[in-house]
Design a protein around this nucleic acid. Structure first.
Lengths: 112, 112
DNA sequence: TTGCATACATAGATTACGAAGGTAACTTCG
DNA sequence: CGAAGTTACCTTCGTAATCTATGTATGCAA
C-alpha cells in the first residue's frame, strides 16, 4: 500500500511525466498509471481532476476540449514549458531524497 | 529545491531509516540528514519534534531521556518493530512510484 | 432498461507542515 | 563574573493541499 503522503507527493510528477510524452485526458491517465504499475497505483477520478485543475492554475499544464465521435468531449491536458521545468526540478528533488533514503537504509559501517 | 509534498512524504521514512541503524536524538538527526545530503535537505527543529511526537503516538518509535555528562539530557528515540514494518512498507511503496516515474520519464516507444 | 464503463466536476472535512516564538542548560571567552 | 553562542526541546497556529463523497452525463451491451 502506498501512504497518503507519498501519494500526494507523486501525483504531480507522474502526471507531468505522462504529459511530457503527449497530451492526455483524465480517465486515460488513470488507466495508464494503473496499467504501468500492475495495479499497484490506483487513482480515483475525484482525486485526479482537482489536481489537474490546480496544476493548470499553476500554469504547469494547459487544457482544451476535444470532441469525440459518439461520446462526450474530452478534456485534454498539455504540459507547458513551466511544467517541463517543474518536472526536472521535481526529479532532482526525488533524487536527493532517494540518495538519503538509500544511504540510511544501508547497514551501519565502521566509519560512521 | 524539494517540494513541500515530497518533504512531507519523505520525513517519516528517512527518520525510520536513521533509527533502524540505532537510537538517536533530534538535533543529531537533523545534522545527519544535512550532512548526507550535502546540504540539500535541511530540516528545522520546529518541524522535526512534532513529527517525532506523532510517530511515537503511532507507536513507530519509543523514546527515553538519557543523561549526558556536562550537558542537558537528550531525548533519544528508538525504532519499534511496528516502525520497522512501516519502513519496509514505505520502501516498497516508493519502489512502485519510482518504477512508474522512471517509466513515464522515458521517451515514448512505438508499442504504446 | 438495467448495468457497466467512460468522463468530468465540486464541496467540504481532514491533515500535516513549517514559521514563529518560547524555555532552558551548558560552554567559551574576555 | 557576565555575555554571547550553541545545543536541545516544545507548543501553537495559520496555510495549504489533499482525498472522500457525491453528483452529473453519455454510450453501449445484454
Amino acid at each position: 500500500m502506498i501512504s497518503k503522503t507519498l501519494m500526494a507527493a507523486s501525483t504531480r510528477p507522474i502526471i507531468l511525466a505522462i504529459l511530457s510524452r503527449g497530451k492526455d485526458y483524465g480517465y486515460s491517465i488513470i488507466q495508464k498509471v494503473k496499467n504501468i504499475s500492475g495495479g499497484g497505483i490506483e487513482w480515483s477520478d475525484g482525486m485526479l481532476y482537482p489536481v489537474l485543475q490546480r496544476m493548470e492554475m499553476d500554469r504547469l499544464i494547459t487544457s482544451e476540449w476535444i470532441a469525440v465521435d459518439g461520446g462526450r468531449p474530452r478534456h485534454y491536458y498539455h504540459i507547458t514549458d513551466l511544467g517541463r521545468q517543474a518536472l526536472e526540478t521535481e526529479l532532482s528533488g526525488w533524487q536527493k531524497i532517494l540518495q538519503a533514503m538509500i544511504h540510511f537504509s544501508q547497514p551501519l559501517l565502521a566509519d560512521e
